[in-house]
């Protein structure tokens, strides 16, 4: 039995390339390559794994972002996603998690029927992890966050949540939303054939006009929070004192003297 799956993805600057300008302390994102948020690659893979097991499944990937986010969507299609929608509008700029969730939920409502919505656990740039559950709340559906695995069986959706103190297995009725952990699986590579298909098929582009929201409900205007300031975190100066391998007694003496090792006294 086929399912209708929607995957939400965000394009982020490659975290290994983001640099902080040492003079202005601002973020130099321009220098960084844009990539699919790593956890979203795992969300895509999770959706594809379900499609592999449940023939007839349809996967739609959506993103709210600037026009160049098209690249990320084409990449998803080259891996086997059926349909891609870019929701883009100047009005969306500056959104905090509230209007981001609202915009995505309104888009999903327009798409219509769905069984599972997948999202990443969090983004690597602003990393709130709040967008997925926010979308579930706007749509009034169940959710399972921080999952390492999920599957469909007998009309139910199962998910394994990794918590700090244990692993929880959840059973839910669709429709529901699931957020996927980075490293939950090994994302598959795009194939050349699917790449060609993706280029042929192309993506759909929607704007504010397509999703029936008022302009002042989205973007900066619709955001309850504002980023007031940003500063670089002052890193501690580290001495890098050297000890060689035959000086371990001396080394341990120093650690104890400085109170770094205490052997249960504190």
């Amino acid at each position: 039995m086929g399912l209708e799956i929607i995957v939400m993805i965000k394009q982020v600057p490659d975290s290994s390339e983001v640099v902080i300008d040492p003079v202005t302390f601002t973020l130099n994102r321009g220098a960084a390559r844009n990539v699919i948020n790593p956890a979203d690659e795992n969300a895509i893979e999770q959706a594809l794994l379900i499609k592999d097991k449940n023939p007839g499944t349809n996967i739609t990937v959506i993103t709210m972002g600037p026009p160049f986010a098209e690249t990320a969507l084409l990449d998803c299609m080259s891996r086997g996603v059926d349909r891609a929608i870019l929701v883009t509008d100047r009005a969306f700029a500056g959104a905090d998690t509230y209007p981001t969730g609202l915009t995505l939920a309104a888009t999903i409502t327009k798409i219509g029927k769905f069984d599972i919505i997948y999202a990443g656990e969090e983004s690597t740039d602003s990393s709130t992890g709040h967008v997925g559950p926010g979308v579930a709340e706007f749509l009034g559906i169940e959710q399972a966050s921080y999952t390492s695995n999920s599957w469909a069986e007998d009309g139910y959706v199962f998910a394994e949540r990794q918590l700090e103190d244990g692993v929880e297995t959840i059973k839910m009725e669709p429709p529901c939303l699931i957020t996927v952990l980075t490293n939950a699986n090994m994302p598959r590579e795009a194939t050349l054939r699917k790449k060609i298909d993706a280029m042929k098929k192309g993506i759909e582009t929607w704007t504010l006009a397509n999703i029936d929201l008022q302009p002042d409900w989205v973007g900066l205007k619709g955001s309850p929070t504002v980023v007031k300031s940003m500063r670089t975190i002052n890193e501690k100066k580290r001495e890098g004192k050297k000890f060689n391998v035959d000086e371990m007694d001396k080394f341990v003496d120093e650690l104890v003297e400085k109170g770094i090792l205490t052997f249960g006294v504190d």
């Binding site: 740039d125 602003s126 990393s127 980023v227 007031k228 940003m230 500063r231 975190i233």
Partner: peptide, 11 residues
């Protein structure tokens, strides 16, 4: 944010 490099104040 940004991998522990920046502290953002949010109101």
């Amino acid at each position: 944010t940004y991998g522990e490099s920046t502290l953002a104040e949010i109101l």
